[in-house]
Amino acid sequence: MAGILSVTDPDRLGKTDRVDAWWVEPLLTVLGLTAFIVYSTWAAFQGDHYRFGPYLSPFYSPNIKEWFGWNLDFSFAFSILWVPAGFRATCYYYRKAYYRSYFMDPPGCAVGEPHGRSYLGETEFPFILQNLHRCFFYLAAIVLAFLWYDAYEAFFFKDAATGPATFGMGVGTIVLLVNVVTLTGFSFGCNSLRHLIGGKLDCFTCGATARIRHKLWGGVSLLNLRHTEWAWVSLFAVGFADLYVRLCSMGIWHDIRIF
């Protein structure tokens, strides 16, 4: 039956009988993602203003420059950012989002796209690489550990006179905490993790480990149900965390110390 469609006229992009505003969702997706990509690229190029007091911008974590005392003449953010970028780019939710809104493949459900049997989906390079999503998950989990460490550090304020650190909390602490919580919600709702942790089992009740993995699978499944929401909230949170640290560091915003 290949090559036979019930409607003989070729599809035009956007051709549809739908009467609702199907184009709103892809439009908002393009605006949201583009804004984030532009901002994060710009921020990563700066190589400066990523630290303020105990706060470290998530774009620059782990702070390898400080650790190793390297004098890098490029912004080291790029040596880190490929991990979360790769994690998000290969994420099943984001794939849906950008295939629809950037590639228009399809732009919406039951909405036309240029007709062609040359479509390859994820069967060939480059999109076959999407199958490496789990590898990005492993790496992103490591980065996530550093972000938790950063959030922890953000509770300890050093006195100006390099005295002992005191426990405290500022607005920035909350910003970093929210950031890492949403990133965790996003990362641990990952479809690959859901598979690896238990989904791959054919029997959830065959043996004690299987039962435990079934429980874990249930937990990941719960997060996964809202993976889209976690994806957007965490994207906003991580961008905002960098912005917050940056503006404080530049002296434009002033961090308020809560206690």
């Binding site: 295939y99 989906g121 994820e122």
Partner: peptide
């Protein structure tokens, strides 16, 4: 299976509300 680019229209139209993409195709 690789031809599916998980754009989820199948899930959106399923009258039985089966999570086709998340529970069948992605796994």
């Amino acid at each position: 299976l690789g031809f599916c680019n998980i754009t989820k229209c199948c899930t959106e139209v399923c009258p039985e509300e089966i999570h086709i993409t998340d529970n069948a195709i992605i796994p």
